[in-house]
Design a protein around this nucleic acid. Structure first.
Length: 152
DNA sequence: GCCAACGTTGGC
DNA sequence: GCCAACGTTGGC
């Protein structure tokens, strides 16, 4: 079992939206590194849902990987902002996973608080300067630390 | 809105 | 294959 962090902009899709939907195809990731991480995912893996580009960026709750990676249909849809003319159905360039809601934190665990625990969270991608990857792995120890910070 | 960081594109 | 230009991300 592995752990991951996935970013989303809550103005577009938030932890509340995920709670309502219960399960969501994580479409639109167009970065090779992020895609490669999704290819490594397995059903049941833990996911930190991270809110970015918002007043208080941070971890908003927990989800889990619902299925293995499969082709992202939006890459074939000319009407979609995620359309990729260079991708073919025979050899799809982009994959995605579905993500299932598990739990919303009572309050967002702010990035600021994660930074305050930089010692225990050393190497966590989201704390690295200029880190823009929307899908990153999270070590088991970091996962535990972050959940313990949420308890209080 | 600013700007640093980083990925991608395309001319050569 | 280099690298400048450009676009995007995301914290502040």
């Amino acid at each position: 079992m592995k752990y991951w962090l996935m970013k989303t902009e809550p103005d577009g899709f938030s932890i509340d939206d995920l709670k309502k939907a219960r399960r969501e195809p994580w479409s639109g990731v167009r970065n090779y590194q992020a895609r490669n991480f999704m290819r490594q995912m397995q059903a049941g893996d833990g996911v930190l849902i991270y809110h970015s580009s918002t007043a208080v960026p941070g971890v908003a709750g927990i989800a889990e990987v619902a299925c293995e990676a499969y082709p992202d249909p939006t890459q074939f849809n000319k009407r979609s902002p995620y359309y990729d003319a260079k991708s073919t159905r025979e050899e799809p360039r982009w994959q995605m996973v579905d993500v299932s809601f598990v739990r919303k934190f009572t309050q967002v665990l702010p990035l600021e608080l994660l930074k305050a625990h930089a010692d225990e969270l050393e190497g966590l991608a989201v704390l690295q300067r200029g880190s823009r990857l929307s899908v990153t792995p999270v070590g088991a120890a970091h996962w535990k630390t972050i959940l313990s910070l949420e308890q209080g």
